[in-house]
């Protein structure tokens, strides 16, 4: 799995490319662990390049979400492909994750929260 990381405006966007399954799950989890250690607690996972996800990938995302919550951070998802979105709906994880259609809308959700905090 390819992971591209961009930090801007108080949050980090991770663009993922490839399949999110048992093979790639640990790689993503380690990457996020590194971010959290560095003090980055607000994360956008841009799944535009993820064309396949299975239960291992879903479990990893839930695990990461819990880790982010522990440090009082926030993680949102965006740009889900049609079938990936369907898997989230079937498993009802669409109710647990904040999911945005685009990266811009995901970023705006952070901007809005930060503005409200001041």
């Amino acid at each position: 799995m390819e992971i591209t990381s961009v930090t801007t405006g108080g949050f980090t966007t991770l663009q993922l490319k490839g399949r999110l399954d048992l093979n790639s799950s640990s790689q993503l989890k380690e990457h996020i662990k590194g971010l959290l250690k560095q003090g980055t607690a607000n994360v956008i996972l841009d799944l535009c390049g993820v064309d396949f996800i299975n239960s291992s990938g879903l479990g990893t995302l839930v695990s990461i979400l819990k880790d982010v919550r522990i440090v009082k951070g926030r993680m949102v998802l965006c740009n889900l492909a049609q079938y990936v979105q369907e898997i989230f709906e079937v498993t009802q994880l669409s109710h647990i994750f904040d999911i945005y259609p685009t990266a811009e809308e995901a970023a705006a959700s952070f901007a809005g929260r930060m503005a409200n905090a001041y």
């Binding site: 239960s55 291992s56 839930v62 819990k66 898997i87 498993t91 009802q92 109710h95």
Partner: peptide, 18 residues
């Protein structure tokens, strides 16, 4: 079941069954 909210594992066979 697939309605197990925030569990980390256990969705594999229910997904196949679906």
């Amino acid at each position: 079941s697939l309605t197990m909210s925030e569990a980390i594992s256990g969705r594999g066979l229910p997904l196949i069954a679906r």
